[in-house]
């Protein structure tokens, strides 16, 4: 019997820890007839460190956010580009397929066996005070993570404040920031419903966030071939879709929690003034993306086109 150690982060109640890992654990244990047992371990360090902890065999499996390691992961930003207009599940499946077909050969995940790729739900605008147009955001103090939302923030002319997500609540309560761009699920899990009382939901959101789940290749190689096949058979696209679905569920729960808490939610419809403004704002970002990955030797334009086509026609 082999123990497979998964290093995780975020609170145990988060969908990734309450649904995704337990479900996959069960799949693995069933597929290997109980020969491989999965254990989850917390508190091993910053999420960005997980890539290296798995590569060096400190743990066997983990997951992380590509945006935490700028410079190393560029192609994965394809799925983060604005105006994808799909659920996390659809985006995750497209993310996986396009990675396998176009991006895998660029080997950005060197030293790791990628077992799943997924995105969080669409990022939305969560504010302390209401806004009526995107122009209202100019000069506002907004917490920005990296990658595509940083670019959007710059185009909006916001005053960027850098901070880890768990700090957002405190900073907002104290007025250090006026708002944050983050998925709907955080209304519940970061308890933003108490402080970010005004949410603008753009159709399809502003951006997505790219995550990977990965395994130590030596661990995989040391397994009995039968078990290796079994684990891989419950990973890949199947795992990616399941993870995306769980994060979608988290967003639904977040929306429900926000509604129950009486948060003022503005649902923008396609063609509304805010939507038009956002479309205008993001012009040229595709080209900027192609430019940024020009040195990777892949057809980024074809990949992004196919990614959008898969995501939008999913199911």
């Amino acid at each position: 019997e082999t123990t497979l150690r998964v290093a995780s982060w975020l609170p145990p109640t988060h969908p990734q820890n309450a649904i995704v890992w337990p479900t996959w654990s069960k799949w693995v244990e069933d597929a290997t007839d109980g020969r491989v047992k999965v254990e989850i371990e917390y508190g091993l360090g910053h999420p960005k460190t997980m890539f290296e902890l798995v590569e060096d065999g400190v743990v066997d499996v983990s997951w992380s956010y590509h945006g935490y390691v700028p410079g190393r992961f560029k192609l994965t930003q394809a799925v983060e580009q604005p105006l994808l207009g799909a659920s996390a599940e659809a985006a995750s499946v497209a993310h996986w397929r396009v990675h396998q077909k176009y991006f895998a050969k660029a080997n950005e995940h060197e030293g790791l066996e990628v077992i799943g790729l997924f995105t969080h739900g669409p990022g939305q605008i969560h504010m302390v005070d209401p806004i009526t147009s995107l122009a209202d955001l100019k000069g506002k103090k907004i917490r920005l993570g990296g990658g595509v939302q940083g670019e959007i923030g710059e185009r909006l002319g916001v005053t960027a404040v850098g901070a880890p997500a768990p700090k957002v609540y405190e900073m907002m309560q104290q007025g250090v920031i006026d708002g944050v761009f983050i998925p709907m699920g955080e209304q519940k899990s970061l308890r933003l419903k108490e402080v970010a009382r005004n949410v603008v939901v753009l159709p399809g959101g502003m951006y997505m966030g790219s995550f990977a789940m990965f395994m130590n290749p030596d661990f995989l190689a040391d397994l009995d071939p039968k078990d290796r096949e079994a684990i891989l058979s419950v990973s890949g696209e199947k795992l990616s879709a399941m993870a995306g679905r769980a994060w979608d569920q988290g967003d639904i729960a977040g929306l429900k929690a926000a509604e129950e808490a009486g948060v003022n939610i503005t649902m923008v419809k396609p063609g509304d003034a805010l939507d038009v403004e956002f479309n205008e704002l993001t012009k040229g970002m595709d080209e900027a993306f192609y430019e940024s990955v020009a040195d990777r030797g892949v057809d980024a334009k074809a990949a992004l086109t196919e990614l959008r086509q898969i995501a939008r026609s999913y199911k």
Binding site: V69, P70, G71, R72, E110, G146, G150, G162
Partner: peptide, 13 residues
């Protein structure tokens, strides 16, 4: 070797 950099300043970590 993997050209990892910081977010804003693009300084090699």
């Amino acid at each position: 070797r993997r050209s990892e950099v910081t977010e804003f300043l693009q300084f090699p970590t």
